[in-house]
Design a protein around this nucleic acid. Structure first.
Lengths: 262, 262
DNA sequence: CCTGCAAACCGTACACCATACGAAGAATGT
DNA sequence: ACATTCTTCGTATGGTGTACGGTTTGCAGG
């Protein structure tokens, strides 16, 4: 398995697990007491992924952390695919969703900021293909909360879905860049300057300015402005402003044309 | 290794390989003739990833396809990490970049469309963490081409970088959704309707409308509008329009304030 | 021509991974 | 007391990337 993704287990089994207690499972209580719990498994998995990245997450590591043997983990969770779903839903429930008031811009900014911080708290979320999000309680609550921020503006239901998808989808880009820069800074013994000095000759030979007039200029300008190879936080702020501008304009024009009809 | 990503090999070694022939390596020609070539390795890898997904890509599979034994692949490529870089750069060189003329909107649309189609051609690109893109010739050419579309509009160099990053970053979202829907349609024996009928009882129990008034409404509306659980192509068109609106507005306002000074 | 030696090739091995299968043991209901 | 049922876990299968060291190949220098 190379790429982790949500929604790979059997759907109903996963659903049942996501909503566990809330669906009163019969849960015959024969046999030895469980030494652990689904929540402990999920939390251990999240800890491992947080600390050492999604690559380090394995059923064996989880078992170690809980004092179990590898195969016992399968008593709590049907497999790794389902576990990923549970992890995603679990982290979605970590924060209390603040009441959204203020302007549309404020509300959309708040949503993006929350998502941004979630990515920083759990970088492995960005390494997971969540195209089919797990329909767990916390993910669902989050979705409801997001949609609430743009309800009653005159957008069609379908447009509402698309606006939120656009906004949340945007955040991933700069968040990835931010984390990448952070990782680089932490891990490399070499400073940025040293790396540059070592690789400059090769890069100069390659990046011949007649072939790359614009990239050359832009790259240099960016490097000087940031005093780093990239400025992801700036990219987040900048991109968010553009995306919200686009959304605002759409809302305004939609409201205007709907107003004409009403 | 669970998540594939670019930029994980030693940088200079990878750079040298990316630009291979163009940097005249000495290449002592002792020993047996090479039975294959870096290009063949990269192309075989891309074929496997195209046909069976990135998870099916392994050094052993590549060797099989080239009639080599596994370890011989390492004579062409230092490791899998570097291979990923080579694959990404290779696919970036598959298309001739069309001349960009027309309005700003047309040019940005063309860029997004090209990226969209590249994702459809090589879905595995979306499963790869390209936060640090490989600085190969084709990726660099592409970047130069993109920047060219917004050069001379009065944007600062840094803003140019951010605009293109925003635009390209956006495409990934709907492309992922599109491919996911396609995969689902192809792979599942069950029709959408059958799936719904089987899971409806559980979903109704879970998705209690008093807890999810808006999502419930929106989800139902979307389902009816698309006659499918999602409409990624529509999301692409919609999102692209909003993003470009936001960019256009920024360009206009920047030009206006710069014009005031000039 | 021959030999030295660098390079390509590959056999083997290691340390992982997810998980299928089935045995062993524990706690409960009867 | 006993049967049932569930947890736990030992073992095994078939995969992964790649380190290491040996074998083969064929060009370059003597």
């Amino acid at each position: 398995m190379s790429t982790e993704s949500t929604g790979r287990g059997e759907p109903d089994r996963t659903l049942r697990l996501l909503w566990r207690e809330r669906l009163g499972e019969p849960l015959g209580s024969r046999g030895p007491k469980q030494r652990s719990s689904v929540d402990e498994v999920v939390e251990a998995a999240i800890q491992i992924a947080d600390e050492e990245g999604i690559d380090a997450l394995s059923m064996r590591r989880i078992a170690d952390r809980l004092g179990l043997k590898p195969m016992s983990v399968y008593t709590y969770v049907p497999g790794k695919a389902e576990l990923i779903d549970l992890m995603v839903d679990h982290v979605a429930g970590e924060v209390v969703l603040p009441a959204l008031d203020g302007s549309l811009r404020d509300r959309l900014t708040e949503i993006a900021r929350l998502q941004w911080e979630e990515y920083l708290r759990h970088p492995w979320l960005l390494s997971i293909d969540t195209s089919r999000p797990p329909l767990g309680p916390h993910v669902s609550d989050r979705w409801e909360w997001c949609l609430g921020a743009i309800d009653g503006l005159g957008l069609s239901d379908v447009d509402m879905d698309r606006v939120i998808t656009l906004l949340l989808g945007f955040v991933g880009g700069p968040a990835r860049a931010y984390l990448d820069a952070e990782r680089l800074h932490r891990s490399s013994a070499e400073s940025d300057v040293e790396w540059w000095e070592r690789n400059a000759p090769l890069l100069e030979q390659i990046m011949d300015p007649s072939r790359y007039p614009i990239s050359g200029r832009v790259g240099q300008a960016a490097g000087e402005a940031y005093e780093a190879p990239a400025d992801p936080l700036g990219a987040f702020t900048f991109g968010l402003a553009r995306v919200i501008d686009g959304i605002e304009r759409y809302v305004t024009s939609t409201a205007a044309s709907a107003g004409g009809h009403a």
